[in-house]
Nucleic acid binder design. Sequence first.
DNA 1: ACAAATTTAGACAGGCTTGTCCAATTCGTC
DNA 2: GACGAATTGGACAAGCCTGTCTAAATTTGT
Lengths: 208, 208
Amino acid sequence: MSVVDAAASVFCREGYAGANIDLIAAEAGVSRQTVYNHHGDKEKLFVAVVRDLTERCNAGIFATIASFPDQPTDLEADLIAFAVRMNRNCICNRDGRFLRKLIQAEGERYPELFAEWRQQGPSRTWSALAARFARLAFAGHLSIGDPDVAARQFLALVNAELQITFMLGGMPTEEEVLRSATNGVRTFLGAFAGKKSPAGKQAALVHA
Amino acid sequence: MSVVDAAASVFCREGYAGANIDLIAAEAGVSRQTVYNHHGDKEKLFVAVVRDLTERCNAGIFATIASFPDQPTDLEADLIAFAVRMNRNCICNRDGRFLRKLIQAEGERYPELFAEWRQQGPSRTWSALAARFARLAFAGHLSIGDPDVAARQFLALVNAELQITFMLGGMPTEEEVLRSATNGVRTFLGAFAGKKSPAGKQAALVHA
DNA sequence: ACAAATTTAGACAGGCTTGTCCAATTCGTC
DNA sequence: GACGAATTGGACAAGCCTGTCTAAATTTGT
């Protein structure tokens, strides 16, 4: 395990103040001196950990959003599968859980570091997701007022049943993820199911 | 400020390991020795803080649930007002934010302490809320499949727009709380709005 | 006003952690 | 095999924190 990975693990488990450089070195399988040679001091190491996690998490999120069902065959099934992918690959995995915990625990102590995360992560995630939902609405599959609100509510709904598990740092089972996603998507579609006259059809008519 | 209140503040701000008894004493306006006289040691003080917060938060939650609109005049407006009360009095207030942060940061280190919170807090909260929604459904105001799922999704929806603020330990403005509640309740009703033939009417007919 | 209980300030030991220094060892590469 | 670079283990100082102790000051109850 690399030094940064070991540090992520220890910072998450023990908190910044409680994290011990000796323990990080031991967990990484290197000597303490090597940690200092590579990363300078504890604070620089922490920053490196956060940047590393932010980068990997964002990459995973945007890779997953790229698999959004733009042309769904079975909208419910496709959205459920997308929500499960999102949870499995971005939110429940090691990086996601670690980053969330670090943000919650140390976010107030490093405002500039996490402001950067906030702008490059959630803001862009929501925009990208909102654009996909807007497209579904435009094609008549959904009836949405504000796509940004819909995107945030989609994420909130498909995670609704996992919040306690997340709070305690746990990892939900595959079955829990599927159930939460299924219930969430059904409610989402109950609220936003498409109307009979999609915008696409209307536009086609105007052009005809 | 009491010792326990000051300790809650410092534990939240600095984490368990980073919390300094001298700082707690100073913030409480007493000497360090008094802290030790009253609470024994750091760990006992931490347990006292968590128990205190858990108790007060639960009391606030159940007091707020008691104000649930069982016989709504304007269902949307009544649910929005309820959601705002819930957020203001239980989730965004000092105790709620502190307890959440302590659970997230130290939950894994004190499993038995937070298992107790979990059983007396979220479990009972969801049951109580589910019962209220079931009653609304029975009276024909809502059309709900599983009341427990509906209760969790209701809370998830009305907080959907506040999650980032909560993550960073911030306090949303009154306007943000209202907007999130309004958007959440509208989506909730979009998915669960009552049917024309309420169970109550059917029951009345059976009895007639 | 007086006596008991509590609180206070400060000193103090013990332990732990960070970050540095250094000599010895190992590793990568030619 | 040889040479330079990186790694290692350990010692080390300095600082911080916990928890205890003590004697003085303050508050409380009567």
